[in-house]
Design a protein around this nucleic acid. Structure first.
Lengths: 185, 185
DNA sequence: CACGAAACTGACCGATCGGCCAGAGTCTGA
DNA sequence: TCAGACTCTGGCCGATCGGTCAGTTTCGTG
């Protein structure tokens, strides 16, 4: 694996587990067996390294949102399914954004992440107005995302096959969201 | 308000919004109109300041857990209600622990917070084994806690009266948790 | 008023941070 | 062989961090 990709993978793991602010470029360099200056050769700055790590997942998410926003978009149930798949696909980035998005939104790429989350929230909030509905959506999406992010840390994620996780999450989300609007969008 | 309490309130707000690592003692001092040395006079270290802020909520939580662990404890529905009340009562500390617990568990008080969350998770995991049930609990508790933590940031918490939030959250949790075990504990 | 405790401060410390830069290897194609 | 691009590095920079300390001000009380 090229050093460039190696650095990205190491940085992702460290950012997610120890935090962006607490992870120094020196530590990333040490783990990769190279020098700090070399890290800054491959990535112009620490912020750009973070952006390089997080952006692909955000691109995916933005693409998914746009298919829902545009006319003739997905049915809600389909969106939910693709949403879960997206979270599972970017399972390393999710904890990073979930746990540190609030803290780092002065960093451009994390601010973008916050905006995307806000768009998802707004998308569903507009569709139904009551407090009950709002919180239902909040608990559903926040719960799934946070559970995935925190599962390992809290010892919940014993070797459960991801297929099982996927179908279980889909059922839970279905219970929480679909009763409000059971068939088409 | 005594400076001591003033500092604690200011630090809590800053830790929650900007992050523990990103909040310097100097900034806390500036906001309080005093000097950094004065902050360190009232709180022996930055870590102890954080501990002073978070500990009361953790004490509350630990007390609640123990009533559930001990024989003759609460019925599950009662626990859920008290859990929600606890989150609402410590609404400022919740985002701090939720968003930064993962990053700061080398700090003793945050490690304690993680342990407490783990105990809650285990308590419910033991009561029911299937993947489906585990994830149900994860989404329920994680979702409620995270929604409260993220609500303001994502613009979800428009001036909804907390009584309404409370009863809505209780209903959602009831839907998610109680079907598994409807009556007694 | 006197005096000791409590509250507070400015200056300073060592450590670490992200970032910069001149230069040294390394590789490739003309 | 040699020129030029790419990769990498040690050393340095200014800034900021948490924390210490000697010393000063403030204050309650006898």
């Amino acid at each position: 694996m090229p050093l460039h990709d190696d650095l990205r993978a190491i940085a992702l793991a460290e950012f997610a587990s120890s935090g962006y602010a607490a992870t120094s470029l020196q530590r990333i360099a040490d783990l990769a067996g190279t020098s700090k200056a070399s890290v800054l050769y491959h990535f112009a700055s620490k912020e750009l390294l973070l952006a390089d790590i997080v952006s692909p997942a955000l691109d995916d998410m933005e693409r998914l949102i746009e298919t829902l926003e545009h006319a003739g978009g997905l049915r809600r149930a389909d969106f939910v399914e693709q949403f879960v798949d997206l979270l599972l696909r970017h399972s390393e980035v999710v904890p990073l954004v979930i746990n540190q998005g609030a803290t780092l939104d002065d960093v451009p790429v994390m601010h973008r992440a916050t905006e995307i989350m806000r768009r998802v929230a707004e998308l569903f909030r507009l569709a139904s107005g009551s407090t009950m509905e709002k919180l239902r959506f909040g608990v559903a999406f926040g719960g799934v995302a946070y559970t995935l992010a925190a599962a390992e840390r809290l010892g919940l994620s014993g070797e459960i096959p991801i297929d099982e996780v996927r179908s279980a999450l889909l059922l839970i989300l279905h219970d929480l969201l679909v009763p409000a609007e059971s068939t088409a969008r």
